[in-house]
Amino acid sequence: MISWVSSMPNKFSVAFSYYFKNYYRSKSFYLMLALIIIISGIMSYFSFRYQSKINTFLDRFDSTTITTSLKSRALDYIWSFVLVDIPVYAAVFFGSPSISSEIEDRTAFHIFSLPVGRMTILSAKYAAAYAATVLISLIYIILEAIITIRIYGTIDMSSYLLSLMLTLIFIASVLAFTFFISSIFNRNIYAYITVLIIYFLVFNAVDVITSLLYSTTSPFLLNNAANIIMEVFVNINLFTFSPTISLSPASASKIFLAVAVMIIYLVASLAAATVLFENKEAK
């Protein structure tokens, strides 16, 4: 028992380094890398080119209150607007085929016969996919800080770090969700499509209906919880039929609620994925 427990971290690190190498050598990684570089480039260009538009937007409020700090937060809000979708695409690339590919590519025969527990395999794979997604997202997040400081000479560091922390939690959550979907299917394509349909179609449809019926967005949907990544800069919710605009950051209770929702998705998805993976049979 003791030897089994002591060998776990070793097996995990071996499996992690193997899967991480697999991820960053994959076409998916380079595709995401190319996309993130293009998106970051476009955002940088727009930040410099349309810098004055931020002033125009803020002019709707009051000229005496437009400080450099507020402008930098408004710019970070716009960058985060794009950021909330990046982990979703990265998770779809790295998470969706994570389990289904083992069955589809028939590699499960070899993996399941190894003297490594399935839980170790799954956790190592999840950690590797998490590392790859964080790596991709960090390129964009770091560039966001550089551009903000370059334009305004300052950045609201507390809001920026809070947004970064929330992004890391969101990545863990959305990745766990894709692992769960992947554990249901034996074909990659089904896993890809299902994740995209649920996240961008089902969640948004539910959102539109709740907005229409109750004039509010449902805080229990993962896509709405992810909006906190940008709302910690400026609390603007444009996703309802009656948008609310406040130049102050989101309140602490709103942040805690979003984190709680992300943790629920994270734990529920990981537990479900683990149970399903334990039951998987190599075909």
């Binding site: 803020l58 709707r60 409020f61 009051d62 005496t64 209150t65 437009i66 400080t67 507020l70 605009i245 406040s246 130049l247 102050s248």
Partner: peptide
Amino acid sequence: FSRISSLMHGNGMNGS
């Protein structure tokens, strides 16, 4: 009217 709201979150409260 939301200019009132903006006043709560910035400096320069002297007049508006």
